[in-house]
Computed example of a mutant assay.
Amino acid sequence: MNRNAAFASALAAVLTTAVSLAQTTAAPAAAAPAAAAAVAPQAIPAKIAIIEYEQVAAATNEGQRLLQELQTKYTPQKTKLDALAAEIDSLQKQLQAAPATMTDEERASRARAIDTKQKQYQRDGDDATTAYNADVQDAIGKVAQKLGPVVMKYVQQNGYTMLLDNNGQQQGGLTLMWAVGGIDISQAIVDAYNASSGVAAPPPSAPSATRPRPTAPATKPGPSK
């Protein structure tokens, strides 16, 4: 189950609970005679919880450890890309510093070699990023699936009537429609999950909760001249 599915299940359970409470409250009115005058609707106090679900999953000790493992897994690919970028940069500088006596044929041959390596760099970088992102989604998705029951237990025990995910706009799901008076429970959920999972915090060098990606050199090789 991915993050959106896990959140949808959690939200559905919250809404089911809210509907049941509303129906219980409305039961006496439903039993009234049909001829009775309509009762003016009454506002039911809402207690809104806000959570950044995906970030919470990544911020747990388990999520941090998984991200750290992925960083280690993809270090060789990053090292290889960095080496290729350095080679391209060196070849470009050599071509730019080539003497005027270099033949057009030799200059064109070197330019083609640089272009080939640039395309390889772009292709390998895209492949590594795609694979890395897929592994991150899978890892965080597994944590998010186990996070669901913790979230539901927390919101029910604390009397919340609605749960909104602050990631909705970016993920194409639910959006945060109203946050006035809402209470962000993200850190409380991280703490509750860490306590129930039994997973110890990773070493200080662990990656942050935001998604790390294999990074390219600060100055990406540009087109050869």
Rank of each mutant, 00 (worst) to 15 (best):
R112I: 03
E105Q: 13
V136F: 01
N158C: 08
T72A: 15
A206L: 05
M1F: 11
A34F: 08
R65N: 11
K225P: 14
T129E: 13
Q120D: 15
T60L: 04
N166E: 12
D191P: 01
I114D: 07
W178C: 10
M152I: 06
R213W: 00
A43C: 00
Q96D: 14
A37E: 09
E87P: 00
V150M: 08
I189D: 10
R3A: 12
G168K: 06
T161L: 05
K73D: 05
E106F: 09
P41Q: 05
L81S: 13
N158D: 09
A201N: 07
T175I: 10
L84W: 02
N133Q: 09
P221Q: 09
V143Q: 07
L21P: 01
Q23I: 07
V155Q: 08
S186Q: 08
P41R: 13
T116G: 05
A128Q: 03
N167V: 00
K153C: 04
A18P: 02
I140P: 05
I114S: 07
Q145I: 00
R112V: 00
A179L: 08
N194C: 11
K73V: 01
T215R: 15
R213T: 10
A46G: 04
K142V: 07
N61E: 11
Q92P: 00
T103D: 10
A22F: 00
E87C: 00
P76N: 07
Q157M: 14
A209N: 04
A98C: 02
A30F: 09
V136P: 04
T219R: 08
P217D: 14
G159K: 15
S90A: 15
Y154G: 11
S197Q: 03
L84K: 09
A98Q: 07
A27N: 12
Q64T: 10
I88S: 06
Y193D: 10
T17R: 14
V39S: 12
V155I: 07
D104T: 06
T103G: 15
Q92K: 14
Y193H: 14
R110P: 00
P207W: 02
T215C: 03
P149T: 03
V39H: 02
K80G: 00
S90T: 13
A29I: 01
S205L: 06
S224F: 01
D89Y: 03
S9K: 13
I44D: 13
A59L: 02
R112F: 10
A98W: 01
S224G: 05
G125H: 06
P217A: 15
Y74P: 06
A113R: 05
Q55V: 01
R213N: 11
A218E: 13
V190H: 13
Y160Q: 06
N61S: 13
E54G: 12
A86I: 00
